[in-house]
Design a protein around this nucleic acid. Structure first.
Length: 297
DNA sequence: CCGTGTTTATTACGGC
DNA sequence: GCCGTAATAAACACGG
């Protein structure tokens, strides 16, 4: 409306938060992690609004990356060119967004507290560390497989109950192992174009798979499409986040990690103090498990 | 130096 | 009105 003859919606400010936008960007790439500059690029490519005042919104975006627990920082491989780290989504942030709206998250994502996932067995800690070592290798080595989950006791960190969740929206790009499209009849296609008028249909959106869905498909709301952020598979792939996420780890594990050469930064005060919201009442994996054909354990 | 990352503060808005 | 979330501004540190 600002400029009738031109791009109509396109140069309006998209109704999505920076968190949403960032999540989109991250989810849009196969590796599920992007350097800051690529996140910028993604947003600018798709949302013309953000081609201006870059200083302002990029500052805000960086603020969000650092401030929100839902983003984790992944170190760059030494031999990889470029500045800064990669950014990824925390595996447990799948249901961050309100159903049907990206304007607001349902709740600020916080890392889980130790009470919620403490393995409590030392062997678990060892196992965890082993996995982390592998993870780091795989991530820093070649490319990440698709998704990941820390899998440290947080068996079901969250469920994908929202067809409009950011991950689901972008998810059409995903190649789920075994070729299983996770789309599963969600109202993706139409909704995308209507719900995201601000977005340019570039690679992410226009490769629309032949998903025919009707409004009746909304009944799928309760279906846990857990394949994006959590990898569906039990396969963990995300490397050790730089971000401390101290509360997320059992103490003995955390102690371990502190010794890691990665030299985690000191715990962030705000994270340590509040241990609110299990964020898992949605734990109720209701839908037909047949949908994802992936182990949900 | 500039891009990146962290942190604090302020303001606005919506929900309860 | 309070509280939580988000947007914005700004200061600062760090590293290539």
């Amino acid at each position: 409306m600002p400029r009738p003859g031109r791009n109509t919606y396109s140069d309006q400010k998209p109704p999505y938060s920076y968190i949403s936008l960032t999540a989109m960007a991250i989810q849009s790439c196969p590796e599920k992690m992007l350097p800051l500059s690529e996140i910028y690029k993604f947003i600018m490519d798709r949302f013309p609004y953000y081609r201006e005042n870059t200083q302002r919104w990029q500052n805000s975006l960086r603020h969000n990356l650092s401030f929100n627990d839902c983003f984790i920082k992944i170190p760059r491989r030494p031999d990889q060119p470029g500045k800064g780290s990669f950014w990824a989504l925390h595996p447990s942030c799948g249901d961050m967004f309100e159903n049907g709206s990206f304007l607001r998250r349902r709740k600020r994502f916080k890392v889980m507290t130790s009470e919620h996932l403490a393995p409590s067995k030392p062997s678990d800690a060892a196992h965890y560390l082993q996995q982390q070592a592998k993870l780091r290798l795989s991530a820093l080595g070649t490319h990440l497989p698709q998704m990941s989950s820390y899998n440290l006791g947080v068996s079901q960190p969250s469920t994908f109950k929202h067809p409009f969740a950011i991950e689901n929206i972008i998810a059409r790009e995903y190649k789920v192992p075994g070729g299983l499209a996770f789309s599963t009849g969600y109202p993706l296609h139409n909704q995308l174009t209507t719900a995201w008028p601000h977005m340019y249909s570039t690679s992410v959106m226009d490769s629309a798979a032949p998903i025919s869905m009707t409004s009746s498909d909304y009944s799928a709301y309760g279906v846990p499409i857990k394949s994006l952020c959590h990898g569906g598979q039990t396969l963990p792939a995300i490397p050790v986040p730089i971000k401390p996420t101290p509360a997320a780890l059992p103490h003995h594990i955390h102690a371990f990690l502190s010794n890691s050469p990665q030299s985690l930064s000191p715990t962030s005060p705000q994270t340590a103090t509040s241990q609110s919201s299990p964020a898992t009442p949605s734990e109720t994996l209701t839908g037909p498990a047949s949908l994802q054909s992936v182990a949900v354990h």
